[in-house]
């Protein structure tokens, strides 16, 4: 069996000012459509790029919680800002989403400050780029540390013996850093897929080390072939340098296409990039309420499948299994 590409769909739920955003029913219909097509995961972002005002009805993490109850297999990632949440609260929210979804949740964290966002969170001066980078790296370490605070077999539920969990299978984090101090542990049980999936987006070159060290998925903008290939190889090299299996980091390339693009052309372009190992897959950027997803599912996907480049359906039940990421006890 050949190497298969990983496919994410970013659903844009934000509408331009003056338009009503898509309803829950409309968004859920799109996500179920993507699930029927066997897409690895959808990524929900609730803000417009560049800090423009949107009229989305929903905040991303609450929407993902609701979507988890009306889907069964597809992975669900929410974008959530490190400026808007304290790390303990964010770690809890995603740990909880992962249990609600039976192991299909992930956090899309961005390495880029949203313009003006800090001004709504009592930080009118924002952060310098250097501070923001160090702060985000520390933040991610805390969140992943909290996700690992409970061993998989910590909960014993022994009614007769009076022991709910094994005390020694829960660990304090005791983090004291430059920006945060967090004692832990999390008060949410361990994830059914070990930890929620971490996707990083908005990277620039100085973020590559952080990404290679911590991310399960890296989302990168489309680039000319040579640049994309160099970037991909560099990230994999750095993953290996930090002691990880290079295949434990999936590099996905952001792509969007218009209704005018022929499915065969789109599929061909994706196949080229994938087969020459400039990426492990793609993140298709689509509006949540449109026929664009149908166009992709009915036009492009069959082409990719004919070429043996995308699997037919889901083989596992958790997101890590869709992504081919190792989990103790699963697989």
């Amino acid at each position: 069996m050949g190497r298969k590409m990983h496919l994410a769909v970013s659903l844009d739920i934000a509408s331009a000012a003056g338009e009503a955003g898509p309803t829950f029913g409309e968004i859920a219909a799109s996500v179920r459509n993507a699930e029927r097509a066997g897409i690895n995961m959808v990524i929900i972002c609730d803000t417009l790029p560049g800090g423009k005002r949107s009229t989305s009805l929903f905040e991303a993490t609450t929407l993902v919680a609701a979507l988890a109850t009306v889907t069964e297999r597809i992975g669900l990632l929410a974008s959530a800002s490190t400026v808007a949440h304290q790390p303990y609260n964010l770690a809890r929210r995603f740990a909880s989403l992962d249990i609600i979804s039976h192991g299909r949740a992930g956090w899309n964290a961005t390495m880029t400050q949203a313009p003006g966002e800090a001004g709504n969170f009592s930080r009118p001066q924002g952060f310098s780029d250097d501070d923001f980078r160090r702060r985000t790296a520390e933040y991610i370490g805390i969140v992943q540390g909290l996700w690992n605070g409970w061993d998989a077999d910590a909960l014993v539920f022994d009614k007769r013996g009076g022991r709910f969990h094994e005390p020694e299978k829960m660990r304090l984090l005791d983090h004291k850093g430059e920006f945060f101090s967090v004692r832990g542990p999390l008060n949410v049980a361990r994830s059914p897929q070990d930890t929620p999936v971490l996707a990083l987006s908005g990277l620039s070159e100085p973020d590559f080390d952080i990404a290679a060290r911590t991310a399960d998925v890296i989302l990168l903008d489309d680039e000319p072939f040579e640049a994309a290939k160099t970037r991909h190889d560099e990230l994999k090299r750095r993953a290996a340098t930090s002691g990880r299996d290079p295949d434990a980091v999936k590099v996905l390339m952001n792509v969007s296409f218009s209704a005018d693009d022929k499915p065969a052309t789109v599929a061909g372009r994706m196949a080229d990039r994938f087969q020459s190992k400039a990426c492990d897959g793609f993140n298709i950027q689509l509006p949540a309420r449109s026929s664009a997803l149908d166009g992709f599912v009915d036009g492009v996907l069959p082409e990719l499948r004919r070429g043996g480049l995308f699997r037919e359906g889901y083989s596992g039940t958790i997101l890590r299994s869709h992504l081919g990421l190792a989990v103790a006890g699963d697989q």
């Binding site: 609701a66 929210r93 249990i99 022991r163 709910f164 969990h165 005390p167 008060n187 949410v188």
Partner: peptide, 26 residues
Amino acid sequence: NINIASQTSRSIGFEPISLLSALAVQ
């Protein structure tokens, strides 16, 4: 006190905003 905590069921549970968001559509 972790020994005490481990004799109760209150050390783990859902984070309530995600929980209620799930219940909202059910």
